[in-house]
Design a protein around this nucleic acid. Structure first.
Lengths: 107, 107
DNA sequence: TTGACATGTTATATTTTTATAACATAATGT
DNA sequence: ACATTATGTTATAAAAATATAACATGTCAA
């Protein structure tokens, strides 16, 4: 199904704070491309589109054209994927790992 | 405490698959810098060191010198942090978000 | 102290990301 | 058809990340 390469794409897509902000903006409801661009007036429209392409390539955005608009939807499954296969394990064990760390570092 | 800037550092540090591999290598037990470098013979030692510096700056590696060796320990708390404040929420709601997505995309 | 080992730094080349401008297409209302 | 709106593409500049070589420091053991 999904290879390590896919995971890497997802991690890389999430690495940019503007891209995470775009996902946040799609969390409550889908938005048109124009509406999304309007939410980031400090960034050039072309730049937003480029970020969206990265998100789409990682499967985090699914879009459908309707008339002359394009509705962009969040797909959170890729996030769940890296959570399930990598991050969740670290997050779950963080406290006990921290205990070991402290024990190791103490004299 | 920990700002959005810190979160960004953590996401960026995790974006590279070699750095994630380094963390994986430290998961079971701490390792010396040399032992870590030996685990990645395909990468230059200097490159591994540079990656380690990125991980250390993000708080994911905590190190202590002992004699002429340096023991590198994993600190998973930063991962838990981005999990708690961002990823976990998406991962938890992924399935219901997916349901909405399907409903939206169906005619 | 001398040599070997373990680690670290600096400088620089290479590659990838990110940002932007200029141009292009496609749908809608009049 | 024509003007307008919404979106998308291509080319290129600018910045950041990554890789590597050359050099430097600190520790230990004989």
């Amino acid at each position: 199904m999904s290879s390590a390469d896919d995971s890497d794409k997802i991690f890389k897509a999430l690495a940019d704070h503007r891209r995470r902000a775009i996902l946040d903006a799609l969390k409550d409801e889908p938005k048109t491309t124009g509406a999304l661009c309007d939410m980031f007036p400090q960034i050039d429209r072309t730049t937003v589109l480029q970020h969206m392409r990265v998100l789409e390539a990682a499967g985090l955005i699914v879009a459908r054209r309707e008339g002359r608009e394009r509705w962009n939807h969040l797909n959170a499954l890729p996030i769940k994927e890296i959570h399930d296969r990598w991050i969740g394990d670290y997050a779950r064990n963080a406290v006990s790992l921290m205990a070991r760390l402290k024990a190791d570092l103490e004299p």
